[in-house]
Design a protein around this nucleic acid. Structure first.
Lengths: 146, 146
DNA sequence: ACTCCACGTTTACAGTTGTAAACTCAATTT
DNA sequence: AAATTGAGTTTACAACTGTAAACGTGGAGT
């Protein structure tokens, strides 16, 4: 049941499948298909394809249960989320990430506990934070270096 | 110079081009190509393709300057970042977004000002925050509803 | 005026992704 | 035992991406 590090990335459509399995802990294809058909306009065949790809890329594991399989996650949900978010942020200008966080936090519904955790992490972070983070969009040696 | 709302999405490789133009405000292709060749192992031809695609999808505008073009952004950097981040977050379980933020903030270098802005936004947000945010990975009516 | 250069455009091509039908078998039903 | 069902696998196919070469043409240099 140890979750592994994933090499390949999970695509948008595949995320929908993973979320079902993450939330249920494990599920057979009938359950996954049934739930996703209700959430999207996907045909069962589409969902079968996605499940197959996730198994092939090592995001889902299988256990034989009589005639069918039970699928379970081979990667942790929080780890996948952290990686996806970090990848997205790393592609953006370092100087602008702070403002992006502000906007994202304004727009995201967060629980009181989450907010308090964030505040305390930020307060600790403040003690060692730099005065400014500089733009990293140009080569370091560029004349107008931002 | 008014930045527009973008229909199509900017791909990872295209982001690199946009960051150059955003940072410089405007640039001719020679400058863009020169800078990106130094940052990546891209051939000039590759960068020309990316510029062309960005113009076609309305992310970059052109101004004729004698024999060549000057490119300038048609979408705002911060808006693009906000949209990209929101899209990424919306694909994740609502219940887990808070923890994802904590991890992302721990791993991101932020300036003192940014941190203080975040803290104050969070403190204000705390006053109206729900006790908990529930998982939205399954259809609302599902038996085991998370 | 002729040549060359370089800028933007066209074409190329394999891999990924979204979307889905068709097919293969083992198991269940009649 | 034959027919049916349904789970997983194969095949399909267009659009999007990353990566890049080839091409056409209007100026710059001679």
């Amino acid at each position: 049941m140890a979750t592994t590090e994933l090499t390949a990335t999970i695509t948008d459509a595949e995320w929908r499948v993973m979320r079902i399995v993450w939330t249920l802990g494990q599920a057979d294809s009938h359950t996954i298909i049934d739930l996703l058909v209700r959430q999207h306009d996907w045909k069962p065949a589409t969902i079968k394809t996605l499940i197959g790809r996730l198994v092939k890329k090592g995001a889902l594991g299988t256990t034989k249960d009589g005639r069918q399989y039970i699928y379970h996650p081979l990667i942790a949900e929080q780890a996948a989320m952290d990686t996806a978010l970090a990848t997205e942020l790393n592609q953006m200008c370092a100087m602008c990430r702070g403002k992006a966080f502000v906007h994202a936090i304004d727009e995201t519904e967060l629980s009181q506990d989450d907010i308090q955790t964030l505040i305390s992490h930020l307060q600790k972070k403040l003690t060692t934070a730099p005065t400014a983070v500089s733009c990293d969009c140009l080569p370091a040696d560029y004349e107008g270096s931002c």
